[in-house]
């Protein structure tokens, strides 16, 4: 069936089955590869995108649920039109030299942006609760925590 998706402010028509996960529509149909496949069952967070501003695991979200919603991916938060929070988070990630292999980091950054958009001054417990769904096998967690706090400082 044909589904209309709004991704990063642009409308896309895709012809797919309604239960196809949003992740694979973004990657294989729209050819946007910044959003990663890690587990396929919402256990690792590598596929995190925003749906109407909320962080969701696109690997476990049927595409039909995304129709009519505003989807934002890592490409969307990296554009010149990105929000101050997005810019602060990515800057803090770069300044803090957070990344190692980098494969999980699109998802980490999307979760961190969603957290700071809602809660500009998160506590350690807030960070744990917002970020514990995002696995990093390089274990860059200490720097992720530090970068979120640094971005928060820049924003408040």
């Amino acid at each position: 069936m044909s589904i209309t998706l709004n991704v990063n402010g642009a409308e896309h028509q895709v012809d797919t089955t309604p239960d196809t996960p949003l992740l694979w529509v973004i990657r294989d149909y729209l050819e946007m590869t910044g959003t990663k496949f890690g587990c396929g069952m919402a256990m690792c967070g590598a596929c995190t995108v925003h749906m109407d501003g909320q962080p969701i695991r696109s690997c476990s979200t049927p595409v039909q649920l995304a129709a009519g919603k505003k989807i934002t991916t890592i490409e969307g938060v990296s554009s010149s039109a990105a929000s101050p929070v997005s810019r602060a988070v990515q800057q803090a990630w770069d300044d803090g030299q957070v990344v190692q292999c980098g494969y999980c980091q699109s998802g980490q950054i999307m979760s961190a942006i969603a957290l700071l958009e809602k809660n500009p001054k998160p506590t350690d417990a807030d960070i744990d609760s917002a970020m514990s769904g995002n696995i990093c096998r390089c274990n860059t967690y200490q720097r992720i925590r530090g970068a979120i706090k640094e971005a928060s400082k820049q924003l408040v």
Partner: peptide, 19 residues
């Protein structure tokens, strides 16, 4: 600073991303 760039804006290419 690190030289393996493109990893905070989704532009770095892994095998999964080859098209």
């Amino acid at each position: 600073p690190r030289k393996d760039v493109g990893k905070t804006d989704g532009t770095a290419i892994y095998t999964q991303d080859v098209w």
